[in-house]
Simulated scan of single mutants.
Amino acid sequence: MIVHQNLGSPVPVRLGDAASQGASRASMFNRINWERLSPSPHEALVDSNASPVLLWQPAKQRPDTISPSSLGSQADSRSAVSKDFERWVNLSLWWIRRNGTRVWGLEKNAVRADLDISLSFISSVFALPCALEALEQGLPGR
Rank of each mutant, 00 (worst) to 15 (best):
A18Y: 09
A19Y: 07
A19R: 05
A19H: 09
A19I: 07
A19G: 01
A19T: 02
S20E: 13
Q21V: 06
Q21W: 05
Q21R: 15
Q21G: 11
G22N: 10
G22V: 12
A23N: 14
A23Y: 02
A23M: 03
S24V: 05
R25M: 08
A26F: 03
A26R: 04
A26Q: 05
S27L: 09
M28L: 13
M28P: 00
F29I: 14
F29K: 14
F29G: 05
N30Q: 08
N30Y: 04
R31W: 12
R31L: 10
I32H: 12
N33P: 00
N33M: 12
N33H: 12
W34V: 00
E35P: 00
E35H: 08
R36I: 10
R36P: 00
R36S: 10
L37F: 06
L37K: 04
L37W: 03
P39W: 02
P39H: 02
P39M: 01
S40E: 10
S40C: 00
P41K: 04
H42I: 03
H42V: 05
H42Y: 02
E43K: 06
A44F: 05
A44E: 01
L45R: 06
L45A: 08
L45H: 04
V46Y: 04
V46G: 05
D47M: 01
D47H: 07
S48V: 00
S48R: 11
A50N: 06
A50S: 12
A50P: 06
S51Y: 08
S51M: 07
P52Q: 08
P52S: 06
P52E: 01
V53A: 01
V53L: 06
L55E: 13
L55F: 15
L55D: 13
L55I: 15
L55Q: 12
Q57V: 15
Q57F: 14
P58N: 11
P58K: 14
A59Q: 11
A59G: 04
K60C: 04
K60T: 15
Q61P: 02
Q61R: 15
Q61A: 13
R62V: 00
R62G: 12
P63I: 12
P63L: 10
P63M: 09
D64E: 15
D64P: 00
D64L: 06
T65G: 09
T65L: 15
T65Q: 15
I66C: 06
I66F: 10
I66K: 11
I66T: 08
S67H: 09
S67C: 05
P68T: 14
P68E: 14
P68L: 09
S69E: 13
S69T: 01
S70Q: 11
S70W: 04
S70K: 08
